[in-house]
């Protein structure tokens, strides 16, 4: 995004403006304040909700908050049990965090595209991109964390030697070592990249369509944005679910000894 484009008027300018993050700093050390802020707020919301439920957790008749929390916990727990056959104190809470946090990120997409930037504008902030999952930094932060866990568990379960052996001697045996290694590296690296890009792509495209709809005359907007929002409810849930399930699958693969 070059700065000339930001200044451009009309439709292009509007779209680019909506997709430009509020950032401080230059180069690599730039920080997207909007992404950091909203994901932290949503994370706090997640923690607050579940902490409330956990504190009031009773084995008797659960209240509304506890019921919702338990539904999600059981849902994630079931996914983990279906895929991962072992014991791990980390994977299920990790799955829950990813599912709810990503869902909340994505949910920001359902706010009318102009409201929050307008509020931010009144407070003197020029740019405001409210959906953290339309920021590659956010999605890659998740997928790289997951990737680190994959590597960590691969080494922990199989040992350095075992992991190296798996990288070099499968699937075609030790004689094809370089080819195996190449294949495995691609396979491993594809995991975080596909995780991050899938979520980013879906939400970025969804947001873009909301922005495009917002460019249309007001009397057409509801006709399009309403169905798209309904459809988007499915997408945001589905993307959060996919991210969680794939994380569980990758981690259970890392746990499996060949």
């Amino acid at each position: 995004m070059a700065s000339e484009e930001h200044a451009a008027e009309g439709a292009t300018g509007y779209i680019v403006h909506h997709l430009t993050p509020l950032s401080v700093g230059e180069g690599f050390w730039a920080l997207h304040l909007d992404t950091l802020f909203f994901s932290a707020v949503l994370g706090a919301l997640f923690i607050w909700f579940f902490k409330t439920a956990a504190e009031k957790a009773t084995i008797g008749v659960p209240g509304t908050v506890q019921s919702i929390a338990e539904m999600l916990v059981e849902f994630v727990d079931q996914q983990v049990k279906d895929t991962f056959h072992g014991k791990s104190a980390l994977i299920a809470p990790l799955g829950l965090t990813i599912f709810v946090w990503v869902f909340l990120w994505n949910f920001m997409d359902l706010f009318p595209v102009d409201i929050l930037p307008l509020v931010a504008g009144m407070m003197g902030m020029e740019y405001m991109r409210v959906v953290p999952s339309t920021d590659l930094n956010a999605t890659f932060a998740l997928s790289i964390s997951v990737f680190i866990l994959i590597i960590f568990y691969s080494i922990k379960i199989k040992g350095v030697f075992g992991f190296a052996k798996e990288l070099t001697c499968t699937p075609f045996g030790p004689w094809m070592m370089p080819f195996n290694l190449l294949l495995k590296l691609v396979e491993e690296i594809a995991k975080p990249i596909s995780l991050a890009l899938r979520l980013f792509g879906n939400l970025y495209a969804g947001e873009l369509i909301f922005i495009l709809i917002a460019l249309l005359p007001w009397y057409i907007q509801p006709l399009l944005s309403f169905p798209w929002a309904i459809f988007h409810i499915l997408i945001i849930t589905l993307q959060a679910f996919i991210f969680m399930v794939l994380t569980i699958v990758y981690l259970s693969m890392a746990h499996e000894d060949h």
Binding site: S39, P93, L94, F140, L142
Partner: peptide, 24 residues
């Protein structure tokens, strides 16, 4: 890609840690 990534990873780690310790 910039330092936001690192910030997000820290937030994520904290969230996961908290969930693992106090929520799950």
């Amino acid at each position: 890609i910039n330092a936001t990534l690192i910030g997000q990873m820290i937030t994520f780690t904290l969230l996961v840690w908290f969930t693992m310790k106090y929520i799950w």
